[in-house]
Design a protein around this nucleic acid. Structure first.
Lengths: 163, 163
DNA sequence: CAAGATTGAAATCTCAATCTTT
DNA sequence: AAAGATTGAGATTTCAATCTTG
């Protein structure tokens, strides 16, 4: 019925893409379950709190936060709504440009990232280091870094600064 | 304020995880936008149609489909609801076990995967092959394959069979 | 008009509960 | 009781439209 166009040889690219989809789904689901159960945070919540905790003065513009977490402008607004209601984040204004709103980590927010990091960072390390050697992880990081979405990724600074 | 627990050295594992998150978000968003604009399908819709087109008699149990795409039981029900309304999939019954329902690809469904594959498989190949050599893609596939969610992944058979 | 931020509406997915069949 | 499938309720996210400020 339909043409020969589809009879391409097994494509490694497609295989990579399917595996990326599957591993992301599986890992995200597991981490989400644990983070929500133990700390009431989603993976994205945690990621945002972690970024804030590493930022200058624990504050970031909402636009920049959105770009880092790969959420839309409205996505970040809604995520921050939740973190504000929980008391982990506050709004801050910008003196030089009244359009921009900052997201500022509160004291409670700091405590929360610290708590959550204690179990979560360990879980992340375990999951990956159980399956790959240190060299393999370097390779994986390098290759993933070439894919879209890598812009602005900060290879250093993957720790939570203490106050 | 909070302890030293968090002052761990920059972790490659965390870096890999963040990059996996970001690349997945960026690529999924791009592919979703294109697939929806051009064919009215989400990435998951397409993935399900592709699996069905490769399956024996173009039919699969809903449970198995869910496992392959990493959706919950209810997730697959709802996704298939949409594909059924669009006429790409039909329900099939099982003679030997009245509990199971099959998802069966229709003629229209077959045409749809073929159409969508024409542009989408090319897009997938381009995206990955522009950034990685063939050997690097093999490495990437192998390493991603060790992560959770790889169970049941079929390394071969990544082509669309023609009728 | 651009950029930053927000809101309403809609889509997708999960969890918990339920129903049917084994 | 366990497996397959579905439903209602809720969470997360996106798109389009809107508002404010530069």
């Amino acid at each position: 019925l339909s043409s020969q166009v589809l009879s391409t040889q097994p494509s490694t690219a497609l295989d990579v893409w399917v595996r990326l989809l599957r591993s992301h789904a599986a890992i995200t689901r597991a981490f989400n379950r644990d983070l929500i159960a133990q700390h009431g945070l989603t993976v994205n919540d945690y990621e945002v709190l972690l970024l804030l905790s590493r930022a200058e003065d624990c504050r970031m513009r909402r636009v920049d936060l959105a770009e880092q977490v790969l959420l839309t402008a409205s996505g970040i607004t809604r995520l921050l709504d939740g973190l504000q209601r929980a008391g982990f984040v506050e709004k801050g204004t910008c003196a030089s440009d009244a359009r921009v709103t900052y997201a500022v980590l509160t004291e409670a927010g700091h405590k929360k990232v610290a708590e959550a990091s204690e179990s979560h960072l360990e879980a992340v390390r375990t999951l990956f280091e159980e399956r790959c050697t240190s060299e393999e992880l370097d390779t994986l990081a390098e290759l993933l870094g070439r894919l879209p979405g890598a812009g602005g990724a900060d290879p250093e600074a993957c720790t939570v600064p203490q106050r």
